[in-house]
Design a protein around this nucleic acid. Structure first.
Lengths: 235, 235
DNA sequence: ATAGAATGTCAACACTTGTACACTGAAATT
DNA sequence: AATTTCAGTGTACAAGTGTTGACATTCTAT
């Protein structure tokens, strides 16, 4: 909590990680737009941060988020009409995170000898690097309010289609129709999001469990791709 | 709401579906134990019913559930220490629902000509018949409080293992180790729970979408089992 | 019959919640 | 230089929250 002794009636929103510079006497000027965007991001970040501890997004309150962002509750409304709208913004953010994953994979080192395993390891690292985003997307995909669930579904479908396109471009699984590729990628994406939950719930100091989880995921993907190749042969 | 004109200070909890007989002047006696169990079930049912409309279990309040069950908030504590404990009870209930699915499948008509499709159709019907349970399990699997998520995970693992056992007994996929069968069933179960969400979110009067969803799920399972068979051959 | 446990009731508490209203002061526009 | 905009402020309110404590009624066991 910030004790505003001077009671100026104005307070720079503080992020919890305290990366922002203090509002000293020598403030450099900041355009209004950029400041607005800064608190907007502070709100989004606050919501994600709160989700890490107590349960899920649905259980979050507007005031709670505002408090965590270092902002008075009424200021929330300058940015979002309500929690649902903030949720939709988070969905979009999650969407770009997902698509970035594909983009990075696209120009990553292609290890043909053990492509699946190296992909899984890269994915695991990516999930851990973007904990909160995945926590939100995977968590609200089935649980959240209908409007948010719908938005996530759309985003996931988008991701799936893009992945199918990549698979086609790579010419893995040649001879499969686009529809079939999408169906297979749907399977893969489901498994990915599921694995994400498992990864995030992993107890902190258990490399054995990590290992087992990775191996299991690798095997599951192998099954899928074996089946996909087989599909191709049977028309 | 029941208007208790006599103000007896006692009121039989009413279920929303009004299956219980009215508390007339000629009450037949009811053992204390069975009455307790009845309101307990009323609370569980109320929680599930409330989940159908507003979002998820996490967003439910103790008072809300008590109100829906036709019971005063304080009576809640006679049955559960809090919402978490009620959630755990729901998890267990969901677990038996899942296992009942397996049991029914076990002695169901085995249509060898198109086993996967008939299984999928049966599953779809089962999900629709047990809407609320699946809504809870699938929804809180990733979203709920840690303790509930853990409980669901355990229940799902149990289900998966049982399914693997059945697959072995059926001698489908002969030559695969138990561990491999479990891994494959994990994949199947994930897909099932995922499909459950889609089934539940299906707009009411769209047989075309239903059809497409079913076909997609069928194809996905086919891919998995094709892969599984292939796995067998490569040792 | 009588005591006790159990299952419910009501009233009250100290909080938190979402939202409305009137405000302030700096940035942007004129 | 004067004016307008607008992202922030504080206060307030009605409604809902979890939980406690003191009763009431009824089943059950002594």
């Amino acid at each position: 909590m910030v004790t505003d002794v001077l009671n100026t009636g104005f307070e720079v929103p503080i992020r919890g990680d305290a990366t922002g510079q203090e509002p000293s006497a020598r403030d450099e000027v900041e355009s209004r737009g950029s400041r607005k965007q800064r608190t907007r991001e502070a709100l989004l970040e606050a919501a994600l941060r709160l989700m890490r501890e107590g349960s899920s997004f649905t259980g979050l309150s507007l005031r709670e988020v505002a408090r965590e962002a270092g902002v008075v509750p009424t200021a929330f409304y300058r940015h979002f009409r309500g929690m649902d709208e903030l949720g939709l913004a988070l969905v979009e953010e999650g969407g770009v995170t997902l698509r970035r994953l594909l983009r990075e994979a696209r120009r990553g080192p292609v290890d043909f000898t053990d492509m699946i395993r190296s992909s899984v390891l890269a994915y695991k690292r990516y999930v851990e690097d973007n904990r909160l985003q995945f926590l939100f997307v995977a968590g609200e995909r089935a649980g959240g309010s209908p409007v948010i669930r719908e938005a996530i579904r759309r985003e996931v479908t988008h991701f799936t289609n893009e992945m199918a396109q990549d698979l086609r471009a790579l010419n893995a699984l040649p001879g499969l129709s686009t529809a079939t590729l999408q169906m297979i990628c749907g399977l893969v994406v489901n498994s990915m999001l599921n694995a994400a939950i498992d990864i995030l719930d992993l107890p902190p100091k258990r490399p054995d469990l990590e290992q087992e989880l990775v191996e299991n995921f690798v095997r599951q993907l192998r099954v899928i791709f074996l089946g996909a190749r087989q599909w191709q042969e049977q028309g």
